[in-house]
Nucleic acid binder design. Sequence first.
RNA 1: GCCCGGGUGGCGGAAUGGUAUACGCGCAACACUUAAAAUGUUGUGAGCGAAAGCUCUUGUCGGUUCGACUCCGACCCCGGGCACCA
Length: 985
Amino acid sequence: MKKYDHKKIEARWQKAWQDEKIYEPDLKKAEKPFGTTQGKPFYNLMMFPYPSGEGLHVGHAFAFTGADVYGRKKRMEGRDVFEPMGYDSFGIHAENYAIKINEHPKELTRKTTERYEAQLKSMGIGYAWDERLLTSDAEYYKWTQWIFMQMWKHGLAYRKKQAVNWCPSCKTVLADEQVILRGVKNDPEQMRGIGVCERCSSVVKKKNLEQWFFRITKYAEKLLQNLEKIDWSEKIKIAQRNWIGRSEGASIRFRIKYKVSSIKSSDEYIEVFTTRPDTLFGATYMVLAPEHELISNLKSKISNFKEVENYVKKARSKTEEERTVETKDKTGVELKGIKAINPTNNEEIPIFAADYVLSGYGTGAIMAVPAHDERDWEFAKKFDIEIRNVIDPVFSTFEGKTEERERVVALVEDGDKVLTINWGPGKGGRLLVGGGIQSSEGPVETAQREIAEEAGYTHVKLAEIGQETVHYKYFSHNKKAGFHAHVKILHFKLEKKERVAQKLEDNEKGWFVVEWISKEQAGREIIDPLHNYVFQKFIAGKCYAGTGIMANSGKFSGMDSEEAKWAITKLVGGERKIQYRLRDWLISRQRYWGAPIPMIFCDTCAAAGKGEYPSASGEMHGWYAVPEKDLPVELPFIKEFRPQGKNESPLASVKEFYETKCPACGAKARRETDVSDTFLDSAWYFLRYPSVHNEKEAWDKALTKKWLPVNMYIGGAEHAVLHLLYSRFVTMAFHDFGILDFEEPFSVFRAHGLLIKDGAKMSKSKGNVVNPDEYVKNFGADAFRMYLMFLAPFEQGGDFRDQGILGITRFLDRVWKMGMEVSEGKEIEKTNSETETLIHQTIKKVTGDIDGLQYNTAISALMVFLSGLEKDGANRENFEILLKLLASFAPHITEELWYELGNKTSIHTSAWPKFDAALALGDTIDFVIQVNGKHRGTINIRRGIGQDEAEKLARETEKVKTALAGKNVHKVVFVPDRLINFVVQ
RNA sequence: GCCCGGGUGGCGGAAUGGUAUACGCGCAACACUUAAAAUGUUGUGAGCGAAAGCUCUUGUCGGUUCGACUCCGACCCCGGGCACCA
């Protein structure tokens, strides 16, 4: 018997597969794969890596193997699987690593891609290497530049000066998506996280620079809407939804009044966006972002302009200095001499400049409603501005065990019954009001609306001494417990009653005595001062940001706040508006290792007011795209490639590079020296793979039609709002340019889990990176692949420990042994029925599990299958099924044994086994017997048995006899083919 | 604070509302061996019991159900994402 020598076998087959190109589908004639089965193109894509020089770690191995398993099964199912691989070799991540090890990125790329390739091949991953691509190759980035140019020509690329994120270590600007918040846990001091660079974790600063942007915001709605149509991991969709951040609200104008003159002189206004127009009556001041243009525009009108200017300067520089901790502490300054007019009541309200209002969102100005917005509340407290409540919380009742949180604040006596009114904090900052009827001795009875009504009470009034008597609308919308009361305060009682003393405990200063009143008495009137009193008394310290009933709002008082939203908007002439959080994609990078942005600036044209002005890009005098025939704009090889930190790319000091001629007038002109964001390279690579050999076009029309969109895309969840969003945007844009006929690039996307080590993410700095090479060498690629797939659910990930790998090695050894025996003729003649059932069950299970990426349970089913064959005997027929099911996970050993059994073509192009659902069920079942829901044994019975027979058989068992002795069976639950349950008393 | 995941043996992890702990690791005993390793067989949630068996057990507390890891309500803990977005 031959020994299982994984090294020899794996090396041999890896070479053979490459020579025979079994993983190379015929891209042009994809309908005829390898002459066996008929099939259709299946584009199985895995996110490509960037070269880091350290080689691939087990996290990569885990992800790539998982994607490969999926592709291999699809191939065996007759699909023409295209599984390409490439390298995201351009860009800041590769360049940073090159700087670190002091090597030129070009050289680094060459070395590391070689290394990666050897590693990937050693793991037996079935890539179509003929279509390999590198984003740093000129034949690739030529088309990246072409994409930029198309964006420009269609008005989706523009240049603008604005405050942008600047990484002082990478010495370049970053897109919003590339700034991550280092977690500063939420604490009472309201510390915020700090924005740090996605690549190097340096604290990001703000700089005012002129940069290139892509108008991704134009696609905000479509990016959001299309999420409904694609089959992606739900968490990625959620992340994208949050990032796009759609809010519905109103745009409202506030007129400005100057102190020096009358209203008539002011046709100036402040426009704000608000999601809460219903709170407009409560807007007691306004805030402009420090960058807001009105501040300088109104310079002459602002009496304390010096002070304001100082603040603005400080606020701006604050973002430029190194900040360690940013707090939510509110700062600001009033713009004296001018006022805004609240359009609902024509009140004059003060205007502030404060940095808690962001210039980049909405209009950069807000109406502040301190009573109903936490940030405004804080600001108002600090600056002593009126807090005017205009929303009355909708009270919810207490339910279940909430006593310890209740604060009894009111009670009314009626004979021996006491009604208590409880107020307490509810979910989401809501105020909960409930109550109950307590008898003189018994425990608190849950207040039922019916109880109250039976007792003749439908309304409650509650009052405090000295306050005018009011009543509140009665609510009762919870069918089960409690009531909601708008109450009338009668008087404030300062002494405590023993009965509720415990409940009041220490935090209560007193309580209100309430009195039930009739519905008629109650009416609908609400008097605001008292409401404010109650509001501040019980919600004080935290404002109420929820919805509710309008108060203090003129004719809208009493209305539902949701309803009032649009009524008030209409009243003040506002407009309904959708606002997105998404910002335009900042494309320029002041770095060397990237695709040069293919634009030329001509001074002569600019002076003459000329330029190439694609619609919607705005008038950018002097700017021209590099003509298509001149692409690529080649990145020169320079030794001084390190970033210099002068807001410029190193290319800005390469004269031969930037000196050029204006494409329009021929005068001396200057090239753009910034390069594009590396995420532009990866935002379209999937379009290039099938057309990688096409030198004339970015992508071949026919091939694209055949292969795209991608059928299955597997990658990390960390790219939810970077690569995955950008790719969708680019695809949508090119669809609209008429160059692609689909909007969404990836029909299915699944995020794989992360492999962690000792409870922490693997990273070189933590020194817990596991290198897969050792495992491949010692245990073999098959064992390693399988172990990775077995160790955790693929989409969940887990802690990498190698203790379990022996289990897989043992399994493969047994497979090998069985293979040898079968090939030597030691086999049973006929598969018995038990094995027959097992075969069909296993095919069914493995097929379904691989489809659902549940590799760990698929492998466990294969283990059960092997044990079954060992017990009942194997033969060529049933063993080949095992091999096929195993082939995706362990491609080498299965191929070896497959040929050993006399097959002449690869197992990987053989047909996936089919199962018979009826056979998978089997003839007999273990039927469960329960008494009162407790397991009391099983009997093996024929499938499809009826209740009478089952019950008879069950009653005959000793256990049931004992359990039922002297008991009265009052119910029998029978679940066919599963269980019978005797319910006794 | 908000939004997602998740909490099951010593460990990784299984379970369409129907035998909780599949499969694997580890551990123990036995077989083979001069011996060890490898391999094979058996056992392995906890407690009580000589045994048959009984009781308890899926983060906590309640609820629905003949029956709950699974459904509902409230809470606790861990991991991840987002966060001054009006």
